[in-house]
Design a protein around this nucleic acid. Structure first.
Length: 418
DNA sequence: TCTGGGGTCCTAGGACCC
DNA sequence: TCTGGGGTCCTAGGACCC
């Protein structure tokens, strides 16, 4: 923030992104309620939102609320392409762009004022260019901090611009519901409502010690700092992932060794491929099992040498799932399996660890070494990059019937907007 | 409400070390 | 043998976000 000056942090957020892209690509969809997705609504146009349709809602529920709702297929590559184009517009004004998903970003325009004029002028120009050159509606919040700019862009929606002048933060925030605060979801909102706190103004009057008691120290401090308008977070132009994961919802399936091995093999294949593509490997492997009542448990292990080989990940994940299942012997059905790999390290440093992994596998005659597995995986990755994902794979994985979620959907979910 | 997938961050307890 | 603080790492669970 610029003390005593003008706010220079922008939060720019495309409106109903997937749905807006569909309406851009197909003019017959404009002005009518549409939803992207099928079983689950990924995005709803504003015409659909008027009926109460929201992202994350089941398709059946959405149809009940809005019988005229049109479901449209996802043009996943178009979403990525247009999202990239919008980011390029941002970068025409400042290099300080922090993209936080496919369709939203923070910008710090303090250094762009001499070239392009006031932050408000820049925000106006961005909105006009995104509309004229790309054809998409976008909302922008302008404020002194990231937190405040994000709240302002939500207030600006749809297709609007909201500025919070320095010194007027309290007047702006006080009447707003606490749910607009980033990090306040259904649970926290309910807990706050239980003690009579519904607006940010009421939150600001609540002592920090009481918030810490109610919500825990970190959440309490965070809410207090918002109330006093302290937010030291800078714009980060590069952010590296802390974990890579994949999951598969299974419906209700009776758990068998074959089911877990096959599904985890498929997931390990995806995760391993993405780790290797990013040039990283991970030391902590976590498996999540969800039972029929939607209760989920996790089991994890941290190994000395970072992993990215598909078969090794499969073996570790299978062993972890066995532990989780053994701890819940009365659960006969599961509804989801997931693998996540964290404690990521660069593959360059992984090379140093390979002899360790090699030693380990040498104690198990008949298994291929970690190094050999890594080489095989790299070959598979290369072939796939040229001929497509289905060109090659481990037999047990290739024929798994767990891949019914389209790959485009999965790639998209890595940056999902809603 | 029950037809998703991929992430981040926080808490709390225990092991272990100094 | 008992008491104690500080720090790090690991594991399990949960809230939240897009």
């Amino acid at each position: 923030m610029t003390p005593g000056g003008q706010p220079t942090i922008l939060h720019a957020d495309l409106d109903a992104f997937y749905a807006s892209v569909e309406q851009l690509l197909d003019p017959t969809l404009r002005g009518i309620p549409i939803a992207v997705g099928g079983g689950v609504v990924l995005a709803a146009s504003y015409e659909a939102r008027a009926f109460g349709v929201t992202g994350g809602m089941s398709g059946r529920r959405a149809r009940q609320l809005c019988p005229a709702l049109r479901f449209v297929g996802g043009h996943f590559h178009e979403y990525q392409r247009l999202g990239d184009e919008v980011m390029a517009v941002f970068r025409d004004f400042t290099p300080l762009v922090e993209r936080i998903s496919i369709d939203e970003a923070f910008l710090d325009v303090a250094g762009a004022i001499t070239l392009f004029g006031s932050p408000i002028g820049i925000a106006t120009s961005i909105r006009r260019r995104v509309k004229d050159e790309i054809g998409l509606p976008i909302s922008i919040g302008v404020a002194g901090t990231k937190h405040l700019a994000k709240i302002a862009s939500q207030v600006a929606k749809p297709d609007g611009l909201v500025v919070v002048p320095i010194g007027q933060e309290r007047e702006f925030l006080n009447p707003l519901p606490v749910g607009l605060i980033w990090g306040v979801g259904a649970v926290t909102r309910t807990r706050l409502a239980g003690v009579g706190v519904r607006t940010i103004g009421e939150l600001a009057e609540t002592p920090n010690s009481y918030l810490r008691h109610l919500l825990g120290s970190a959440a309490g401090d965070k809410l207090s700092s918002l109330a006093t308008n302290v937010d030291p977070r800078r714009i980060q132009t590069t952010r590296s992932a802390h974990s890579v994961g994949a999951q598969a919802a299974l419906g209700r399936r009776v758990v068998t060794p074959d089911l877990t091995r096959t599904t985890l093999g498929y997931l390990a294949d995806r995760v391993g491929g993405r780790l290797r593509a990013a040039g990283v490997a991970g030391r902590t492997i976590t498996v999540r099992v969800r039972f029929a009542d939607l209760r989920a448990v996790t089991r994890s292990i941290t190994v000395p040498a970072a992993l990215s080989a598909t078969l090794t990940l499969t073996e570790v994940a299978t062993a972890l799932a066995d532990v989780a299942l053994a701890d819940h012997p009365h659960e006969r059905e599961i509804t989801l399996l997931a693998i996540s790999v964290s404690q990521l390290v660069d593959q360059a440093s992984l090379q140093l660890e390979l002899p360790l992994e090699l030693q380990d596998s040498e104690r198990r005659p008949g298994t291929r070494t970690g190094a050999a597995r890594w080489v095989v995986d790299r070959s598979v990755d290369l072939i796939r990059s040229r001929f497509g994902r289905d060109a090659i794979g481990y037999a047990s994985v290739k024929f798994a019937d767990v891949g019914h979620v389209p790959d485009g959907f999965r790639e998209l979910a890595e940056h999902a907007p809603e």
